[in-house]
């Protein structure tokens, strides 16, 4: 496959993941599923950034032993990886807080289904 097509397919994969997440949040009635969809959405962003960092014929961004003068061409871009480490941590934290909220909701209302919940809130 030529590089252009491969590139577009990769971007489309990230976009599809993003859309799966968005769809889940908009359409699924169960709150836990919404939360899982939210995680997929965040993973999509992470995948997208990692794609941006890749270079053909380059190695991971760790200076090889004996390489006195590293050249940018030989290593992949470390910046997106760093940024996504942050994004992963944010994703974990948000999930933790969301789970805590869900436990509170379940203790109080005994259900995590959105329509039942709306019914009970009235």
């Amino acid at each position: 496959m030529e590089a252009e097509t491969l590139s577009v397919v990769n971007y489309w994969l990230a976009a599809s993941l993003f859309l799966i997440g968005l769809y889940g949040i908009l359409a699924r009635p169960h709150l836990v599923r919404k939360l899982m969809a939210m995680n997929i959405l965040q993973v999509a962003v992470i995948v997208f950034f990692i794609i941006l960092g890749y270079k053909s014929d380059a190695t991971p961004p760790i200076v090889r032993q004996g390489d006195e003068t590293p050249i940018a061409r030989n290593y992949i871009n470390p910046l997106p990886h760093t940024l996504m480490l942050t994004a992963i941590v944010v994703s974990v934290s948000t999930t933790g807080v969301a789970l805590a909220l869900l436990i509170r909701i379940h203790r109080r209302f005994g259900t995590l289904d959105e329509s039942e919940l709306i019914e009970k809130l009235k």
């Binding site: 993003f18 997440g21 968005l22 949040i25 919404k34 939360l35 939210m38 959405l41 965040q42 999509a44 962003v45 944010v90 948000t94 969301a98």
Partner: peptide, 8 residues
Amino acid sequence: LIGTVAAS
């Protein structure tokens, strides 16, 4: 949920 979508 909405806020996380916004941030994404």
